[in-house]
């Protein structure tokens, strides 16, 4: 092992880290990766390409991507306001952003369902417009926007902080409109961070369970998310099937994160 620093403690801390990572992350995930092959490759493939599974994966990844896509402009707006503007209550508002991280997901799910159900505060207001949120894929989207928002804001905030104001001013002096400054100067500088935020919100949304099952409706082929299907398979004592789906989700998530990382490196 090479260590470029003269500081002590490399062996000790590396030992602790490796033990910790192995015990809590690697060994358990290895168990997950071993289990599906009881079915053989064909069995594994068949079990993750059932129409119902594909529909669930499509919903989980589609809704998570859409939610992340909504969260990027929304998170950018909120981060911008928090960093660039001073207004009364800013600190409290800034703290509230972390609410979805601090609030238990099941509680969030129950609360969102109560809000958007036909009899709920918001559900009642939206019903005359013909918009149904609870028990539809829209409900899944809503819950995922909720859980993903802080990831985008927290990742973008420090980058906005470091953004040199001179560049914007220069652009303004050169006669650029506010919109042009935003599009040509600010956005390119923020793009890598926005992409990271998108990836983090997406990764979080794909696996989300607690807040979604209450509001989703859980109809096969329509509003059934992939993690629920894992639970259903588990309850049918189909361990290998549950592990297969888990592995497939993990693989897809990983591929997406890798792609995002690569895109980012190209940008930077």
């Amino acid at each position: 092992m090479t260590r470029r620093s003269a500081l002590p403690g490399f062996g000790l801390t590396l030992g602790i880290t490796l033990t910790w990572v192995s015990l809590i992350v690697l060994i358990p995930l290895a168990a997950l990766m071993l289990r599906p092959w009881e079915l053989g490759f064909a069995g594994f493939w068949a079990s993750v390409t059932e129409p119902r599974v594909l529909a669930a994966l499509q919903l989980s990844f589609g809704a998570a991507a859409l939610a992340a896509a909504v969260n990027v402009p929304l998170g950018l707006l909120i981060a911008w306001v928090m960093v660039r503007y001073r207004f009364p209550g800013r600190r409290i508002a800034d703290a509230v952003i972390d609410m979805p991280l601090a609030l238990p997901t099941a509680v969030a799910g129950i609360a969102l369902t109560a809000l958007f159900a036909p009899k709920g505060w918001l559900g009642e207001a939206l019903a005359p417009l013909g918009i149904k949120v609870a028990y539809t894929p829209l409900g899944v989207l809503m819950a995922l926007i909720f859980v993903g928002l802080p990831f985008v804001v927290r990742i973008v905030e420090p980058v906005i902080q470091d953004l040199p104001v001179d560049a914007e001013e220069a652009a303004a002096v050169l006669g650029a409109t506010r919109f042009q400054t935003l599009r040509r100067v600010v956005l390119p500088a923020l793009a890598p961070a926005l992409l990271t935020g998108f990836g983090a919100a997406l990764a979080r949304g794909v696996g989300e369970y607690g807040s979604v099952i209450f509001i989703a409706g859980n109809r096969p082929m329509v509003s059934e998310i992939a993690p629920l299907l894992i639970v259903i398979r588990l309850e049918q004592l189909n361990y290998a099937g549950a592990a297969s789906l888990g592995l497939a989700m993990l693989a897809i998530s990983f591929a997406i994160l890798l792609t995002i990382n690569r895109l980012q490196r190209r940008m930077a």
Partner: peptide, 11 residues
Amino acid sequence: MSHRLTRRGAL
């Protein structure tokens, strides 16, 4: 030394 410590802590 350090390795033993690590292992003991984990155990």
